[in-house]
Structures are given as structure tokens and as C-alpha cells.
């Protein structure tokens, strides 16, 4: 049997996206260790990475990082193509759609905190849509919406602040640029 080598030609940008997605994955795994009072109420720490990537490298890169994180994360946790995977996916997709618009808000007035809050609301909207249309088609889930909305507001604001803090930090910024250029 002859050994065959499949060599994909990758660009520096591919490597960069993969690194960022790996950081997001690390945060996802970290987050899974935190116990949650209610399934679905999670801080969404990986979105900090998405926010930073969005601000630095644009929407296309952010979409790659976010979706790679969802798919690779589901493979790691063994829930690829299960309801949990589709919940993550719908949340991520709706967040990205909202971020595509939110990032055009005037930067003088709106920062990562606003982006993060809008994305968090979009995330929970996407998840509730999947839950309602597919998993639990019962109006009773409306009782849970205030809890999820409150969590989205709080965690969205906190994640936005963390992202803004990281982007401001002059000691971290050079490292990010270095990753980008190497």
C-alpha cells in the first residue's frame, strides 16, 4: 500500500482563524465546568473572542471563528447533530446576523458592550425559536423567556466589557497583531 499524503494549501489567514477558534474552544470547555442553575443559562465566554475578532478583523473572520467553534466544540463534547448542537448553531447564526448590522453602528457612540448585548439577545432568540419550533412546541416555554432574557442582558454586558478591556490592553494587543501577521 502506498502512502498517500493529502496536503491542503493553507494561508496565513486560515492559521489565524484556526488559532482564534482554538481560543474560543478553550473558553467553551472552561465554561462547561461551571455549573448552571438552569440548562441554557451560560456566560458564553467564547463570544468574547468573537467580539474581539469582529472588531479587529471584520465580520467574515468572526463568522468563521464562531461557526468553527460551534462545530468543533460539538465534536469535542460528542453532541454533533444533536439538539444541543442545533441550539448552539441557531444561536451563533442569529448572533452573527445581528452583529453584521450592529457593527455598523457609529463607533464613536457604540462599543463592544452594545454589540455583545445585541448578540446575546439574538443568541437567545435563535435558541428559543429552535426550542419552540422543533423541541418543545408549547407556549409554556414563554415562562422561561424572562430568565433567559435577563441572563442575556447580564452576560452580554459583562462579555462586552471583558472584550473592550482586552482590546484596550496595550500589553495584549501586540500579541494579537503578531498572531495576525506571522
Amino acid at each position: 500500500m502506498t502512502a498517500s499524503i493529502i496536503k491542503l494549501s493553507t494561508t496565513a489567514e486560515d492559521h489565524h482563524i484556526a488559532r482564534m477558534a482554538a481560543v474560543a474552544l478553550g473558553l467553551t470547555i472552561l465554561e462547561n465546568a461551571i455549573p448552571s442553575p438552569l440548562p441554557g443559562v451560560k456566560p458564553g465566554l467564547a463570544n468574547i473572542v468573537t467580539l474581539i475578532v469582529l472588531a479587529r478583523y471584520g465580520w467574515r473572520t468572526a463568522a468563521w471563528v464562531s461557526l468553527l467553534r460551534v462545530v468543533a466544540g460539538s465534536l469535542l463534547f460528542g453532541n454533533f447533530l444533536t439538539p444541543g448542537f442545533f441550539l448552539s448553531l441557531s444561536g451563533a447564526v442569529l448572533s452573527l446576523i445581528v452583529l453584521a448590522f450592529a457593527r455598523h453602528l457609529p463607533a464613536r457612540w457604540f462599543g463592544p458592550v452594545s454589540h455583545s448585548i445585541y448578540a446575546a439577545f439574538a443568541h437567545i432568540t435563535g435558541q428559543m425559536l429552535v426550542v419552540y419550533l422543533w423541541l418543545i412546541p408549547h407556549a409554556g416555554i414563554a415562562y422561561l423567556i424572562p430568565i433567559f432574557a435577563t441572563a442575556a442582558l447580564v452576560f452580554g454586558a459583562v462579555n462586552g466589557l471583558i472584550a473592550a478591556r482586552f482590546m484596550d490592553d496595550k500589553t495584549i494587543y501586540p500579541q494579537i497583531t503578531q498572531i495576525h501577521t506571522d
Binding site: 457612540w109 462599543g111 458592550v113 452594545s114 439577545f121 414563554a142 424572562p146 432574557a149 473592550a164 478591556r165
Partner: peptide, 29 residues
């Protein structure tokens, strides 16, 4: 240091979102 990252529009977002969550809670609960 944390507060300086919140721009005026962000405060507006926070305010509107809080009102939205309160309204949601009142109507749904």
C-alpha cells in the same frame, strides 16, 4: 476602569435592554 469602556450609546443600549427585559417579565409572568 471598567466603566470607561462603556460609551454613551452603550448606556442607551443597557437602558433600553433593561426596559425590554422588565416589560417582557411583566407581560409573560
Amino acid at each position: 476602569a471598567a466603566l470607561q469602556h462603556i460609551k454613551p450609546g452603550d448606556w442607551l443600549t443597557l437602558l433600553l435592554s433593561s426596559l425590554f427585559v422588565v416589560a417582557l417579565t411583566l407581560t409573560l409572568w
